[in-house]
Each structure stands twice: as structure tokens, then as C-alpha cells.
């Protein structure tokens, strides 16, 4: 693989990568591949849509989002309780949270779903390929994307 080292690391080390993924194995693979691609930001995992929303909207008694930090969300679609599309919808409806870049990373390659996610305002849509090489390729690309993207800070709620 020719990805090599990424020289410019625009994404601040302070930036946190949120991964909403119900499958532990998938999360582990994504994390490892991201780290191999040179992304060394803090990574947080949420097992379902509810946990993700609780974190972002500062609700519940789990981990909470800190104001004025940079976040990026990798979002799976099919998850228990609240699915990824609903999470995306809620984030993009919020005037504050909608600045967070959302990368859809899912096994669903249904064109209707892909279009819907784009309509709702996801930044990137990537299908989790079954083939390992393709998978690492995809996650590598996300790693590259993360290293060049300018992530806005999200302020807290009033």
C-alpha cells in the first residue's frame, strides 16, 4: 500500500473521532486501520444511536461532549435503538451540531439510503467493503480526509 505518511496533520490532536458502531469487531478494525494510517487522535466508541445522541446533546449519565472541542463522527447506519440516519438527521437539524463533519461508514450500499444521507447533509458516504484490502483502503482514505479537513469547533449549548 502506498499511502505513506501524511505530512500535514491539519486535524488538531485535540480533535476527537467519534465512532458510532454497534459491531465491536468493526470498531476495532476501523480503529486499528485509522491508527496505522497515522491518525492518532482520541477515539470514542458508541454502541448505538442513543448513546451517540446522548453524548452530543449532553444528555444522560454517560460521557458528555465538551464545548469548544473539535469532533468528527463516523456513523454506522444499522444500529439498535436509534439508527444512523436518525442520528444524522438530528445532528444536521441542530444549528450548533450541524458543523460536525459526519462520515457515513456502513455496510449498506442501497442507493436510496446513500442519497438520503447526502440529502441530510453527511460529508462523506463510504460502504464498508467485505474485502479486507478495500476496507483498509476506505478507512485509510478517511484517515487522509481527517488529516486535511478543517474541523470547526462546536460551541456548547447556551
Amino acid at each position: 500500500m502506498k499511502w505513506g505518511q501524511v505530512e500535514r496533520k491539519r486535524m488538531n490532536k485535540e480533535g476527537v473521532i467519534l465512532i458510532a458502531e454497534d459491531d465491536e469487531g468493526h470498531f476495532e478494525l476501523i480503529k486499528r486501520t485509522l491508527q496505522r494510517a497515522g491518525v492518532c487522535n482520541e477515539i470514542l466508541r458508541f454502541a448505538d444511536g442513543q448513546e451517540t445522541l446522548d453524548f452530543l446533546f449532553i444528555k444522560g449519565d454517560g460521557l458528555k461532549r465538551e464545548p469548544n472541542r473539535e469532533y468528527l463522527l463516523l456513523l454506522d447506519i444499522r444500529m439498535p435503538k436509534i439508527d444512523g440516519i436518525e442520528v444524522l438527521e438530528k445532528i444536521k437539524q441542530d444549528p450548533n451540531l450541524k458543523k460536525i463533519p459526519v462520515v457515513m461508514l456502513t455496510t449498506t450500499d442501497d442507493p436510496v439510503t446513500i442519497e438520503r444521507c447526502h440529502d441530510l447533509g453527511c460529508s462523506v458516504y463510504i460502504v464498508k467493503p467485505v474485502e479486507y484490502e478495500d476496507f483498509t483502503d476506505a478507512v485509510h482514505k478517511i484517515g487522509l480526509f481527517l488529516s486535511v479537513v478543517e474541523i470547526p469547533q462546536v460551541s456548547g449549548f447556551k
Binding site: 469487531g25 468493526h26 444499522r78 449498506t108 467485505v130 476496507f135
Partner: peptide
């Protein structure tokens, strides 16, 4: 979708 999810794991962790 649900059948593909474990396949991603099998492939991925085989490589690991």
C-alpha cells in the same frame, strides 16, 4: 446487511 457485517469481521481479523 446483517450477513455482510460478520463477513467484514472475518475478513478483517483474518488479515489482523
Amino acid at each position: 446487511h446483517d450477513l455482510r457485517a460478520p463477513l467484514v469481521n472475518i475478513q478483517g481479523f483474518s488479515h489482523e
